[in-house]
Write a protein that binds this DNA or RNA. Structure first.
Lengths: 231, 231
DNA sequence: CTAAAGTATTTGGTAGGCCATAATACGATT
DNA sequence: AATCGTATTATGGCCTACCAAATACTTTAG
């Protein structure tokens, strides 16, 4: 991140976003924050009207979301918002545990103080956001905490995988962080990760990261199984 | 896998494959086995002609492959077959190591003889295919070896992730298995995984699985860096 | 011989239409 | 009244045709 602004400095930052990408983001966001609920049908022509784009674009967007796992396609019935089953959620958490554990270990083994500093910055932001009850900010800073973990040791592919999986459980995440006591417990677990990284304890960092995810998973499971019978 | 054929027994198994899916498979296969080479442009209208389908379908297929990482989209220039850079390949192998290690550990901890039997069956098939110099069969049976590892402990999501990543390095795989001595070394490493699982040694199974992937990764790296300067 | 102007090529996106299938409503028949 | 066909509708899958903008390639004029 040193000399990357040589000719990027004056570069006109054009939106460059193709209409398709804009639509994709819109629909994904609509799903993630519950405007479309799991199980809702996504009727192509309706989406065209709502988004103001053509069917071609809508269809491409739906295909993309399908491969992200946010949308499921029922044969001869069309696309719906994917329903999240508890088994799948647990598996996603498990995978995140494996990958985040790996990244944490690598960070510890690298032993760079900058990583520790960056992580602590995110953690502070998380604590502040909890204090302010700003849950959206908690999520954002938690993401950047993990992003640091992955990208500071150049594991962009793994970070991509984690992101891909995370969108599928996003509404779960927003529920887990609101859970009783999560405001102190979560940051505490994260600080353990940082501690282990600081003292170069790869094993410990890995374990701490996995513990943190496991805790989130347990809460998510409780939340999910509590709400399933209700509906 | 006990009583799942209650009403599935008579279910009419219609192909149901939509044209889009057929085209998707065709193009993916064409990329994977080198009919389209990395860097080749994928001109929509040409593909339409070659596949005998409309642009609508082709575009959706290209989007899908893009999100699989097999196709890259240059802005205002169009899609090309993604080039595989060595750094990315290493990361993919690393992730596979983490996930396959996890699955192997779970298999060991479950301690079911059926898993061991299934794995051994795949391994025998692999050995036979090596003996017959049938490399396509080696790849197929290797896949089913890992599929067993994941699906017998119900880790379908992780298996999906591994598959997603694997297509991106598929041509590497076909090169690594042809490497000198891989015909005895690879199966040997796999038999170590099985041994550890058989004696319920989770830790050992995990390590053995990770070793196996690490060996493949090392070979792939050698192959890649040997061929890059050549072109 | 170079620079400018024109010409393909190709993607991004739109519009609209056709057909097959599934579900629903509706009417007829026993 | 219950059942059985039969329209109707909604919708996805797929197609053709078109336009605008950007890129790449030629040709022409100075």
């Amino acid at each position: 991140m040193s000399g990357a602004l040589k000719d990027a400095a004056i570069r006109v930052e054009r939106p460059a976003k193709t209409l398709r990408e804009l639509a994709l983001d819109k629909v994904r966001e609509a799903i993630v924050n519950g405007y479309f609920r799991p199980g809702d049908r996504l009727v192509e022509r309706d989406l065209c009207a709502q988004l103001g784009v053509s069917r071609t674009v809508v269809r491409e967007v739906l295909r993309h979301l399908e491969s992200e796992g946010l949308v499921a396609n029922l044969p001869n019935k069309g696309p719906i918002v994917a329903l999240l089953d508890i088994e799948e959620a647990k598996q996603i958490y498990e995978i995140r545990g494996a990958l985040e554990g790996m990244a944490a270990r690598l960070c510890a083994e690298r032993g760079s103080p900058e990583i520790v500093a960056a992580l602590e910055e995110s953690l502070t932001a998380i604590r502040n956001s909890y204090r302010d009850q700003d849950m959206a900010a908690v999520l954002a800073h938690t993401s950047s905490f993990y992003q640091t973990l992955f990208t500071r040791v150049d594991r962009h592919v793994a970070w991509g995988v984690v992101n891909l999986l995370t969108v599928r459980i996003n509404h779960l995440r927003s529920m887990t962080i609101k859970t009783e006591g999560r405001g102190t417990e979560g940051p505490l677990q994260m600080s353990k990760i940082i501690d282990a990284i600081r003292r170069g304890d790869g094993e410990g960092a890995q374990r701490a990261a996995m513990d943190h995810v496991a805790a989130a998973s347990a809460i998510a499971e409780a939340v999910l199984s509590a709400q399933k019978p209700a509906e």
